[in-house]
Design a protein around this nucleic acid. Structure first.
Length: 360
DNA sequence: GAACCGTGGTA
DNA sequence: TTACCAAGGTT
């Protein structure tokens, strides 16, 4: 890299930091304590998730698991129940696994080494960099959606944002621009710029502190970066979800397999074969005799890579008492008891729909 | 290395 | 309504 570029990178970071001092988001909940544990939790929650969405989950999580030991000693079910609704549940499982590793290998002392962080489940290059920069104020770059967008505009990079070469180039630029002085503040500043000024749609370039550095702005082509990629249409799948209640009103939930969608959460018994008979399914896989059933309104649920059409079915079963089920795989659930059960948002929606139809 | 993994906001 | 995508990482 030549002298001019190096000078320009330094000028970029100092302009950005001056803006951050005045306009940056310096009161985020996880910045209140100078604690690697809290930074770590927030960084994982913030993966692919916006700040406003994370905040209530962060408080709930920290109240329940205030430190590494409480998290490591908890049951994974308990962690998932706090995470329920936030999505990407592997993050919660990985957080819990990592906490146990840190407890067992390091007596709960949080790692201070980049390589050690990277080796933990759920921590990749960007999250490790963020923890190093925010917790220890060390010079590590980050590359999240905000930073990517900002850098692609600043340098008018016209490549597929997801392509390996583009990623490598962006990491190189991110590293070159990260100053040795206040790397923590700088990383926060460039993310804040992306979130507040250099937004995906309708960026406010006139308020941008680094527009003089911005090649896209200078060629009046900010809207062209990053380049938009056409995606394949999402496939549609459909299923039935069974609402089976006991005489005492508890609803039957079934534990999802540890991997795959909603991994480790408690969901309704699900029939993926639309032709299968309800009575037979219940007899064979649940050992319950269904007497009658009633179809509810279908609801659509959108995932990242497919769309799910859910047909809920309210079933009444032929039992005079309360049937017992294998407690590892099944749970009789009462919404009003606050059990430690992580329940997917789609299932919560079905419960709400059911409530509102019952009240009519 | 491409597919997978949630949910909510926004245009 | 539809499509995009946000403080990404794992397999």
């Amino acid at each position: 890299m030549n002298k001019k570029t190096r000078y320009s990178d330094r000028e970029f970071s100092s302009d950005l930091l001056a803006w951050y001092t005045v306009h940056g988001r310096q009161n985020l909940p996880w910045k209140q304590l100078d604690s690697p544990y809290h930074i770590w939790i927030s960084e994982v929650m913030l993966q692919q998730t916006q700040v406003e969405t994370v905040i209530p989950y962060y408080w709930k999580f920290i109240r329940k698991f205030p430190d590494m030991r409480s998290l490591a000693n908890a049951e994974v079910d308990s962690v998932l129940s706090v995470w329920a609704g936030l999505g990407y549940y592997a993050r919660a499982r990985n957080l819990h696994r990592a906490a146990r590793i840190i407890r067992d290998d390091r007596d709960c002392e949080f790692p201070r080494d980049f390589g050690q962080l990277l080796s933990l489940p759920g921590i990749g290059r960007s999250t490790a960099g963020a923890i190093m920069a925010f917790s220890y104020n060390l010079r590590y770059p980050i590359l999240d959606g905000n930073v990517k967008r900002v850098l692609m505009r600043i340098h008018a990079i016209d490549g597929d944002p997801g392509a390996r070469e583009t990623q490598a180039l962006l990491w190189k630029i991110a590293d070159a621009k990260t100053p040795g002085d206040s790397p923590g503040d700088y990383n926060q500043a460039i993310m804040d710029l992306g979130a507040m000024i250099c937004k995906r749609a309708a960026p406010s370039c006139l308020n941008c502190p680094v527009r003089n550095h911005c090649q896209a702005y200078q060629s009046q082509a900010v809207a062209d970066y990053p380049r938009k990629i056409r995606r394949a249409k999402r496939p549609v799948r459909s299923c039935r979800m069974l609402l089976i209640s006991r005489p005492d009103g508890d609803v039957l939930l079934q534990k999802r397999p540890p991997h795959g969608i909603w991994g480790g959460l408690w969901s309704l018994p699900q029939m993926d074969d639309p032709k299968a008979g309800i009575r037979r399914f219940c007899a064979e896989s649940l050992e319950l005799e269904v007497a009658t059933w009633r179809e509810m309104d279908m609801l659509r649920h959108h995932f990242t890579h497919y769309e799910l059409l859910i047909h809920p079915v309210v079933c009444s079963i032929d039992h005079s008492g309360n049937p017992t089920m294998d407690e590892e795989r099944f749970l009789w659930y009462n919404r009003n008891l606050g059990q430690d059960a992580g329940i997917p948002t789609a299932v919560e929606r079905i419960f709400k729909n059911l409530e509102s139809t019952e009240n009519k």
